[in-house]
Simulated scan of single mutants.
Amino acid sequence: MDKLTRPIDEPQVKCEVCLKEIPQSEAVNPEAQDYVLFFCGVDCYSRWNEEAARQKAGGKRS
């Protein structure tokens, strides 16, 4: 079976939560007014979202 290949020059970004490098084209990227965050998948995005909600509510960071 042939391996799938990706272009070498595809831009890489780091996941905001786990810092894993991923192709920008495959990243989940919710945009805000002044910045863009990248996540390697729904699990890291959910984790980040839960942590942001805790911080907003005044909870301590885990």
Score class of each variant (00 low, 15 high):
44 C>E: 05
11 P>I: 08
53 A>N: 11
7 P>Y: 10
10 E>W: 08
49 N>L: 11
32 A>F: 02
54 R>H: 00
52 A>T: 03
8 I>V: 09
4 L>T: 14
38 F>R: 01
57 A>T: 01
54 R>P: 00
53 A>P: 02
33 Q>L: 13
48 W>F: 15
11 P>N: 08
55 Q>H: 03
2 D>F: 05
11 P>Y: 09
3 K>G: 12
3 K>I: 13
39 F>C: 01
39 F>H: 04
3 K>Q: 12
50 E>T: 14
58 G>Q: 03
48 W>K: 13
24 Q>K: 15
27 A>V: 06
59 G>A: 00
50 E>D: 15
41 G>L: 04
35 Y>G: 04
58 G>F: 00
35 Y>L: 09
27 A>E: 04
8 I>R: 12
46 S>M: 12
22 I>E: 04
42 V>S: 08
13 V>R: 05
9 D>L: 14
31 E>A: 07
61 R>P: 04
59 G>D: 00
21 E>Q: 13
2 D>I: 12
29 N>M: 04
43 D>E: 15
29 N>G: 02
29 N>W: 00
36 V>G: 02
27 A>H: 06
32 A>K: 05
62 S>F: 07
15 C>G: 05
49 N>S: 15
34 D>I: 07
58 G>L: 00
23 P>H: 13
45 Y>T: 04
60 K>G: 02
31 E>C: 06
14 K>P: 06
53 A>F: 05
55 Q>E: 04
42 V>M: 12
51 E>Q: 14
32 A>R: 03
19 L>V: 07
16 E>Y: 12
42 V>C: 05
21 E>W: 10
46 S>V: 14
20 K>L: 13
21 E>A: 09
31 E>K: 13
54 R>N: 01
51 E>R: 07
41 G>E: 08
5 T>C: 12
10 E>G: 09
43 D>F: 08
3 K>S: 15
32 A>N: 07
50 E>P: 03
42 V>I: 13
48 W>T: 08
15 C>F: 09
32 A>P: 02
41 G>K: 08
51 E>C: 13
58 G>A: 01
17 V>E: 11
1 M>W: 02
52 A>R: 11
47 R>Q: 15
5 T>F: 08
55 Q>I: 02
46 S>Y: 08
56 K>E: 00
19 L>C: 07
50 E>G: 05
22 I>C: 08
51 E>S: 09
61 R>L: 05
46 S>L: 13
54 R>Q: 00
32 A>W: 01
38 F>E: 00
21 E>R: 15
30 P>W: 08
11 P>F: 10
